[in-house]
């Protein structure tokens, strides 16, 4: 408790929680490095400071304009300091009222004030809890891959991102605020640099995956998003249905935007993460999935004549193999002929 009070009565600590800048970030991260045993106190103190809120009633634009007009025209109010009854018509009403009636009016008025007060409290509570954190304007960087390309990159905080083909990520030049926001399209594997004070947050369509320092894979293609956790702990928040799930290592969350269904299950580490090692994996994939997989992996376009004789259910792996080898193997299994013409392949059934 005393240790907590030490932070909670330090104006510089409050400033760091409310309006962090580089200098404060540097100071407090050094402080934590020097006092690693105090990290939980710091976190608790931060939660307390940011949890405190007040019900504020904001003025409407009309009030703001009206008051400015009054000020600029310097409308002088009545000498008696009477603020409410300042038009002559009100004054007449005023004189008609006896003290008794006055009291009645106050009762009515206080009921009205109470009702308005309550609705304003609910309203401001609502607004308050929905208020988005103020984000500073920071330059955004974007990295993307075309079909057939893969890319490794390092983010400003030291997080390593492996971007699969036909994917892109966007992130700020500098992670200044309270979190580390990243946007992902397509598939990527993240090894998040540990920083318990700045959650790492990946937004991919409707899913927001939050981690403090872990490694996970996100695949967001064809309206199906999957988050597969390798180490550590992540929280996956669904912006569409407001659901929140915590994943354990070895678990994968799969969300279908079309059916709006979320499933959590175990995943096969080898097949989900093999792409990072240049291993092309198909596991129980149908014809369309195999075609798309090949197109993305090798950066080619595949046409076909006729249709597969039967439903494909292909499970096979290729370790850093050439397109020729892969095609000839699949053609043998699924029984088709094909022609290769530079970057265009035609499959014939």
């Amino acid at each position: 408790m005393n240790q907590l009070t030490e932070f909670l009565t330090n104006p510089e600590f409050v400033r760091w929680v409310k309006n962090p800048d580089e200098e404060l970030d540097l100071y407090w991260s050094n402080w934590i490095k020097a006092n690693p045993s105090r990290i939980n106190d710091i976190k608790l103190a931060r939660e307390i400071v940011s949890g405190i809120g007040f019900h504020l009633k904001s003025p409407s634009q009309e009030i703001k304009d009206e008051v400015l007009n009054n000020i600029l025209s310097d409308k002088v109010r009545g000498q008696n300091g009477d603020l409410l009854f300042n038009s002559p018509k009100d004054d007449i009403i005023h004189s008609y009222l006896s003290w008794f009636q006055y009291k009645q009016i106050y009762r009515v008025a206080s009921i009205i004030i109470l009702v308005f007060g309550l609705s304003f409290i609910f309203h401001s509570l609502w607004n308050w809890s929905n208020k988005a954190p103020v984000e500073q304007v920071v330059a955004m960087l974007e990295k993307s891959t075309k079909q057939g390309e893969r890319l490794n990159c390092k983010l400003p905080d030291g997080t390593i991102v492996q971007l699969n083909s036909n994917s892109s990520i966007r992130y700020p030049e500098d992670f200044k605020g309270e979190s580390r926001p990243v946007e992902l399209n397509g598939e990527a594997f993240f090894e998040v640099a540990h920083n318990p004070l700045k959650p790492f947050r990946v937004t991919s369509s409707d899913l927001v995956t939050t981690a403090l320092g872990t490694s996970f894979n996100i695949n967001n293609k064809n309206d199906v998003i999957s988050v597969a956790l390798v180490t550590g702990k992540v929280e996956v928040k669904n912006l569409a249905d407001k659901g929140r799930n915590l994943l354990k290592p070895g678990q994968e969350l799969i969300y279908s935007a079309e059916s709006r269904k979320t499933n959590i299950g175990e995943f096969n580490m080898n097949s989900v993460l093999a792409w990072r090692d240049g291993i092309l994996v198909f596991s129980e994939n149908n014809f369309e999935e195999v075609i798309e997989g090949l197109e993305n992996w090798y950066g080619v376009s595949i046409n076909y004549e006729g249709n597969p004789k039967r439903e494909w259910n292909l499970s096979i792996q290729f370790d850093n193999a050439s397109l020729e080898r892969v095609l000839s193997r699949i053609a043998y299994i699924e029984k088709f002929n094909y022609e290769m013409n530079d970057k265009t392949i035609t499959i014939k059934f």
């Binding site: 939660e47 959650p199 702990k233």
Partner: peptide, 8 residues
């Protein structure tokens, strides 16, 4: 705040 890693 976040569900994960919170103290409260």
């Amino acid at each position: 705040q976040l569900l994960i890693d919170r103290q409260l």
